[in-house]
Design a protein around this nucleic acid. Structure first.
Lengths: 243, 243
DNA sequence: GTGATTTTGTGTTTAATAACATCTTTTTAA
DNA sequence: TTAAAAAGATGTTATTAAACACAAAATCAC
């Protein structure tokens, strides 16, 4: 059973067993009987995605629940005039791509890898089956969905009512919360393009560039290419709150 | 067991039994064993709310799952500068007010009656208990949450990227979809104030008034006080889509 | 019924941000 | 290695929608 899945990511080659993957998913793993566990291992597939590679697109029919084993993923929506809005970001180890399946819709969002990522797929029918035999697992997804819905509602209001600087400050803090910082405690682990920052913050790329520069001049952040270090988190929080 | 709950609503007095209420909730009712059913009936409370009466507020701790038996309810968030954003509307018979409980948070939204409403409350702990013993019921809530999350994400992008007319057109269509029309097939069943329309569409009240007048002049809708009749739905759809 | 309050309607001004145009720098691919 | 493409930077203009001000109409409280 311990067959290795070979994943070539950029230069280095990573060897990982499906067992290893499942062990990183305690909520799912602990909910399974030995036979169910065997089933999941058999049906699970694992593959690597390159930086910026699409994972699924708006309109696709969801067939699998996805799990980000390593890397970073963005969930976004293409709006009017080709402008994309990132609705949330996914960090490892987290499930994603199951919402549409649970409401029997096609995807209304798209997903792409922010950076090289390893993603496990489990057929959604199997997950549904497991949920219907395991209320604990069902409650796990209820909780995940409830958290996501609360954040989405908050995001709706933040993106609509705050001004540019407030939205940008919030995005910076959101990235810190989602992906954390390096050992120095202030450099974001993720290195988003200015366009990504714009798509997170509901503004044009020009305005993201301008406002980031302004924040840097005000010594709230420090910029080094795509690297962002937070110098004055309190001030950012204040700007984010004030709108 | 068939004790009557007396509800005075405006002028008329409505008599309703808890059994009647439970019968309107087939998803819940059918999932219950006789003892569970008895428990729910015992713990359920029913009360009437006047027009514009608050149901819960941001920051409150959720203790009950609510069910709108009759009437209409808005779920909203107060944003920067005292401006409210309606994030969704509830029609009868629908559950609401359970999201925060499922993610162990206090409410991040507020709810108020759009018009006189009757609402049943069931202790959330009882619901949680039932879910953990009834995967079918769990899946019911997974489905509801998944649908709500999809709509919330779509709403985020619509409210941020579309222009005023697009947002207003969309709100009108959303109210038609949510509450339907009178027998004529075009007069909305709900009669929202201009401020409600503004809070649905993320704009100032002035702009809601102006844009509604513009739609009326263009013969897309007809206005009679707070009554809105849709004259040209195709055109509204086009305006909503274009942004 | 009547005065007070709220809601609706309209015009004007101002602020915010998108759109556009260029230019520079960095990254990518042959 | 170099040409092409993409990303980043910056200034200018145009557009959108908010803010403000005030008047009329409708609704509410007593």
């Amino acid at each position: 059973m311990a067959k290795y899945v070979s994943l070539r990511i950029k230069i280095q080659k990573i060897m990982i067993t499906k067992e290893d993957v499942l062990k990183k998913l305690p909520d799912l793993d602990s909910a399974l009987s030995p036979e169910q566990r065997e089933q999941v291992l058999e049906k699970m597939t694992v593959r690597a995605y390159r930086k910026n590679e699409p994972i699924y697109s708006e309109g696709d029919t969801p067939k699998h629940m996805l799990c980000l084993v390593s890397g970073k993923v963005k969930i976004y929506k293409d709006g009017v005039g080709g402008r994309a809005q990132i609705v949330r970001v996914v960090n490892s180890v987290e499930y994603f791509g199951y919402r549409a399946a649970f409401s029997d819709e096609n995807y209304v969002t798209a997903a792409a890898a922010f950076e090289p990522s390893i993603i496990a797929s489990i057929p959604i029918e199997l997950i549904r089956h497991l949920i219907l035999h395991n209320p604990q697992l069902g409650y796990f997804f209820i909780r995940r969905l409830a958290i996501a819905l609360g954040k989405s509602d908050a995001r709706t209001v933040n993106l609509t009512q705050k001004h540019i600087r407030g939205r940008l400050a919030e995005s910076i803090l959101y990235l810190k919360e989602s992906y954390g910082t390096e050992e120095d405690g202030c450099t974001l682990c993720i290195h988003p393009s200015r366009e990504d920052m714009a798509n997170l913050s509901n503004m044009t790329t020009s305005n993201a560039i301008r406002s980031l520069s302004a924040f840097a001049q005000e010594k709230l952040i420090e910029l080094d290419g795509r690297r962002i270090r937070i110098l004055n988190e309190n001030a950012l929080q204040k700007i984010s709150k004030m709108g």
